[in-house]
Amino acid sequence: MAALFTLTAALYVAAAALYLDFLGRGRERSAGAGAALLGLGAALHFAFLLAEGLRGASPVGADIQQALSVASWLVALGLLATTRGKPRLRVLGAFVTPVTLLLFLGAGFRRGVAVVGEEMRSALLPVHVAANVLGLVAFALAFGVAVAYLVQERQLRRKQLGALFQRLPPLDVLDALSFRLVATGFPMFTLGVVTGTVWAVQRDPSAPAIDATQTVGLLAWATFAMVLLLRVVVGFRGRRAAFGTALGFLGACAVLVGYVVRKDGGS
């Protein structure tokens, strides 16, 4: 199992390095090899997930690391699907693959500590976890796109129009893609927040107000809500929308870090 994990991580590292090489030096072969290694990594990752499931280490949805692992796998698949047949978007691998890698490594951090206790589990838990995972995947992709937007916009404003500028996709394409991804992830994330709240109340109606981790989660949700609301109502787009998207994803990541380092897995 450890070998599968290490091999998958190594493939993700290699894919990220190749995509970054393509971003920096523009070698087409690096982009192709990066996509191939990412695909191979995702295949091994799937084998790893299957092996974990067969081993029955923890029930579905009860383990934050398992959720992280699934999320990182879906981010890899999401990237491959988004860039398939679109050569101008391949460079996004340089921004998204490192996120995949970090999520996957996070899944291997202090494994088995943060499992939700049996007495805490309910039918809502898998819904809560699945919705949050899907939301996180869309936000991770949106984050990569938003960072690419910020890099491209900075170059255009500073009039640095070198090879890197030529390789990155047009600003409008990045802006529209980021919006679509946030709009896709937000309903999922909202469902995750709502089911999480209901689950917490069901578990202990007399429990005190939300803790620090949950507060950060709500702030991340509010950030994405603002990004979408301002975009639709005021036409808020471009750099500010990209900052908002990046900030919202970092908030969501902070929640994950909180759950991973806590001993109770958020229960």
């Binding site: 491209q152 255009l156 129009l161 500028f165 030529q166 996709p169 047009p170 600003l171 409008d172 394409v173």
Partner: peptide
């Protein structure tokens, strides 16, 4: 790679902004 006349550079930049 890259355009070398002012008007085609302007078009190229427009494409980099709007696709």
């Amino acid at each position: 790679a890259g355009n070398v006349s002012v008007s085609s550079v302007a078009t190229d930049l427009a494409r980099q902004i709007f696709g």
